[in-house]
Design a protein around this nucleic acid. Structure first.
Lengths: 227, 227
DNA sequence: ATGAAACATGAGTCAATGTTCAAGTTCGGC
DNA sequence: GCCGAACTTGAACATTGACTCATGTTTCAT
């Protein structure tokens, strides 16, 4: 799980509150921008704690210290803010992981660091992972966009790494999805359902699986080609 | 993705409609059992097509050719039937995959076959995969139970395989979750979002990743220990 | 045959909440 | 300091759909 590096997904400078296009009603003043941010932050809490279905607009606005009416100045519907939230969180996730793997000397290291960073991220943003997962059924297109952005960057990175000989050849798109799947499920298991297992251990085990697979290790042959 | 073999999960002979405990109101006559099955089948369609939120009890009962009142003879709530459905589908999935990997000579083969079988399964039961995923937020405990049953069997199989020297040593529980994650995400990507990629290809690529990881292949050294 | 338990019915109840709107308040450029 | 645009308000509306219940029908053990 380490899709990035310098992902910017073809998008222009992302504002603090997100790209204009995703919510029809962009604020025009500083005050408006602050309000929008308050709504998104409140929504992250509300949706994260209660889930899309049980969450209410009233819950969001009261957390934000605003009135219900204000909500509809910024978003067309409950679903709209949910979508915006997913996109907002995509930026957050990419930023976090990108930062941590920036210094990795090669892809295999990046993968090790990446899984660890991802679990760590989920532990510190449990709600985020919950929300993204829920987007699966609430806003499938937003969910897809979230992971496709990820997968695409991942694929590119794998391809480049393969070209440099750091990893073996293969179908990199598929590998990207498989690796994302690993991260996502380990996130649930070891960050949300229980978070007492040592992160480094998880990272090491996952990193090893990603690097070497399950095949028995020839006790004699060296594991790497060059070095 | 190939958790089973002869999974029976410590449970006693499972009836066609499921273990008694999971829905408080077990039918006592043959007629009742048929009705219950009709409801579950109808619910699979309704929830699968419309999602938990948009699905309605009326939708379920009308698909089943029954009245709303009947529904509440068998289930206490919308959520209750959803849970029952998840459990019901767990049995189905385990059966399917177990059947396909039964003949595998060793674990690595089982893994290859397993991923392929899983994608195939999802392609033929798209609704099922959707429902399970939605259970993530609608009935987290049922969701967990579903995957924990899976992971537990998986872990056991991996451990036994390691003891036989078919795979390398390592943390098998974690590996189990990682492998499940691979299957789940590949299922979404290559069975639901698009299902035109050749299954054998996916299975081969995933199998290779699972077997050998990403590490570059020494062009000289043999890949397997014994043979 | 028969009665009681199991099963089936579906119009009506009811609470929840997403959304609207007409009226007020604040802000920022001139 | 002024004025229009931007923003805020929250009571009221409208819809929706889960769930109840009093009544009717079928089944089956005796």
């Amino acid at each position: 799980m380490a899709g990035d590096g310098e992902i910017s997904t073809g998008a222009s400078p992302e504002t603090q509150t997100g790209t204009q296009a995703e919510n029809a009603k962009a604020p025009k003043t500083e005050r408006g921008r602050r309000t929008l941010r308050k709504l998104l932050d409140a929504a992250a809490l509300e949706f994260g704690e209660r889930g899309f279905h049980d969450a209410s607009i009233a819950g969001v606005t009261s957390r934000a210290g605003l009135s219900i009416g204000t909500f509809y100045v910024y978003f067309d519907s409950k679903e709209a803010i949910f979508r915006a939230l997913v996109a907002d969180m995509g930026r957050l996730t990419r930023g976090w992981i990108g930062d941590r793997i920036k210094g990795a000397p090669d892809r295999l290291t990046a993968e090790r660091v990446g899984v660890t960073a991802y679990i760590e991220f989920v532990r510190e943003h449990k709600n985020l992972h919950r929300i993204i997962t829920e987007a699966h059924s609430v806003a499938p297109d937003a969910y897809r966009a979230y992971y496709e952005t990820f997968a695409e960057a991942y694929r590119r990175n794998l391809e480049e790494a393969a070209a440099r000989g750091e990893i073996s050849d293969g179908d990199h798109e598929e590998r990207a999805w498989a690796l994302i799947g690993i991260g996502s499920f380990l996130g649930w298991r070891y960050a949300i359902w229980s978070d007492d297992v040592d992160i480094a251990e998880i990272g090491a085990a996952a990193g090893d699986l990603i690097e070497n697979g399950l095949a028995p290790r020839p006790p004699f042959a060296p594991r790497k080609a060059k070095s």
